[in-house]
Design a protein around this nucleic acid. Structure first.
Lengths: 134, 134
DNA sequence: CTGCACCCTGTAGTCGGTACAGGGTCAACA
DNA sequence: TGTTGACCCTGTACCGACTACAGGGTGCAG
């Protein structure tokens, strides 16, 4: 019976989201439109808070909004087995591993360039010449 | 005297860039507009090729177009000392390190969730409940 | 009753491209 | 000579995931 409705500002603060972003989520249909007060303010239920928390947490974990949509659809069905969710997460993990190794390669390359410009003018700069066509 | 001009398609292929992207770079002013043939085709010089190669390589290394602009401005001046370039690169390296450690934290979290859904319905799914508000 | 924080809608901008639509040019081949 | 077909041109709209206004309305405290 705890019908404590939340304003958009409260919801935003509780989930570390900007107010505009909450409205954006509604616009793209990932967060259902809430009831309105007599003054036309959005009045969010605890369900909305839960759903938004879920969205934000998944976004923090690097899922795209499309992936979040898929996860939410699964959660809403409560029928299928967990395998689909697991697969989605595994796929996402593989992406993350790819990104990490790309960044590491980049890191190696870039850190090799740094510190080679002890003095001298741009003309001798190793960083710039490393970027120039061979 | 090797006035071998390149068509936009050749330039794009040589630098692993899409034709539209080359035109986009011209539009935003990072690649100078080349001469035109009598048929109004863009005719690129070796200088254009060099500059585009530089841009693409820097982009591959994760510099933003604004950062690339800064690097190009430095390279074009050929006056200042290398310190500015070095600082830019160091700053960028710090960013990369931040991204790597963020992704690693994420990886740990996500991989902990995977494989816990051996059976059972969505209702018991650990991944979904991990994402739900506590 | 007035001031201020908050809310509303709608639109445009961000970054780094990508994807057309609707045409023009050019070289090869029949 | 004509006609394919690959390439090129401009202009505009779109992508993801927001963010930032402008121009107004609401609600509450002093």
């Amino acid at each position: 019976m705890e019908k404590a409705y939340h304003s958009i500002g409260e919801l935003a603060e509780a989930t570390d989201t900007k107010v505009e972003t909450v409205r954006y989520y509604e616009r793209i249909g990932i967060l259902p439109a809430p009831k309105r007060t007599s003054g036309n303010y959005r009045a969010y239920s605890a369900g909305h808070l839960a759903r938004l928390s879920f969205i934000r947490r998944a976004r923090d974990l690097g899922f795209t909004l499309d992936q979040v949509r898929a996860l939410l659809a699964l959660a809403d069905q409560k029928k299928q087995d967990c395998g689909t969710v697991d697969a989605l997460a595994r796929e996402h993990l593989a992406e993350i591993d790819r990104k990490i190794s790309d960044l590491k390669a980049l890191r190696r390359e870039l850190s090799g360039l740094i510190g080679q410009c002890k003095q001298g003018t741009i003309a001798d700069c190793r960083i710039l010449s490393a970027l120039s066509p061979r």
